[in-house]
Design a protein around this nucleic acid. Structure first.
Length: 252
DNA sequence: TCCCAGGTGTCGA
DNA sequence: TCGACACATGGG
């Protein structure tokens, strides 16, 4: 892994932004009760003993130059790649990602982080069992609380999410969206940031805006058409294209 | 005060 | 299949 913009990667609305703390360019969180730090000082550095975790988190095997070559299909994407060079898709724990993106529903990033952090104990997000058996109203999730509780209940009840990584993308979307409170958008975020399905293409307000303004005539283009277009155009790296467009659309 | 946020479920046409 | 609406909360 050579190409990395650590700050941008960790603070671009992906799962790590909700769970890692940042001080002067150093990112930290508790993992298994131990403090893990990641920083960039000429090269990538991290706390001894966390190499495999950090490499997985930052998807060290993704060859960005090769991915750029594949997704650089037009002027807009070219500019996004130029602006956000070194932005990587991250890979976090599936349940952490599921909980985070349920909290993200009709919410802003600052408050998502507050919500998620309030659901952590010693740096780890509460398990489905803990979510189900605890009064979590202190987290002030609003209407998302019942989504999270219900999803936790369904997972415990047998709608397992541990086999999703063995499924094909379409099957995985179908499986996740059966969970109460997980719709098309959240499922695609969970698949992208929690399971590593790089063909995922989450469509939120920012993506909808930039896609309809640049690739369609009609602002009311359906999400289904937008996703079909994106996956046709950017193929197995549609998720990378999505993340670059997301940053561009938000003006990060 | 108002608008909006990395949306989803529900209902009626 | 699609549009309208409710849903909690708080940042800007």
């Amino acid at each position: 892994m050579v190409l990395l913009n650590l700050g941008l990667t960790m603070k671009s609305g992906q799962t790590p932004e909700f769970l890692w703390n940042c001080e002067e360019g150093r990112f930290s969180r508790l993992i298994g009760g131990r403090l893990c730090e990641i920083w960039h000082d000429g090269e990538l550095k991290f706390t001894h003993g966390f190499e495999s975790r950090v490499m997985e988190l930052l998807r060290k095997d993704d060859d960005l130059e090769r991915i750029y070559k594949r997704i650089n299909t037009d002027g807009l994407m070219g500019e996004a790649i130029k602006n956000y060079r070194g932005l990587r898709i991250t890979k976090s724990d599936p349940w952490e990602t599921t909980l985070s993106f349920i909290c993200s529903i009709n919410n802003n990033i600052k408050r998502i982080r507050k919500n998620v952090q309030s659901l952590t104990v010693n740096g780890a997000v509460m398990t489905p069992e803990e979510i189900l058996n605890t009064d979590i109203s202190f987290a002030r999730l609003g209407f998302r609380q019942k989504f999270l509780k219900k999803t936790a209940e369904m997972i415990i009840g047998g709608h397992s999410i541990s086999e999703v990584n063995k499924m094909k993308y379409e099957e995985a979307v179908e499986h996740l969206t059966k969970l109460h409170g997980i719709g098309d958008k959240v499922a695609n975020c969970v698949l992208l940031f929690g399971y590593g399905f790089l063909e995922s293409f989450p469509i939120d307000t920012w993506i909808r805006k930039i896609m309809t303004e640049n690739y369609f005539d009609c602002k009311k283009t359906s999400d289904r058409k937008i996703r079909e277009f994106a996956q046709e155009r950017w193929g197995k790296y549609a998720g990378y294209a999505n993340q670059y467009l997301f940053c561009y659309s938000r003006g990060l």
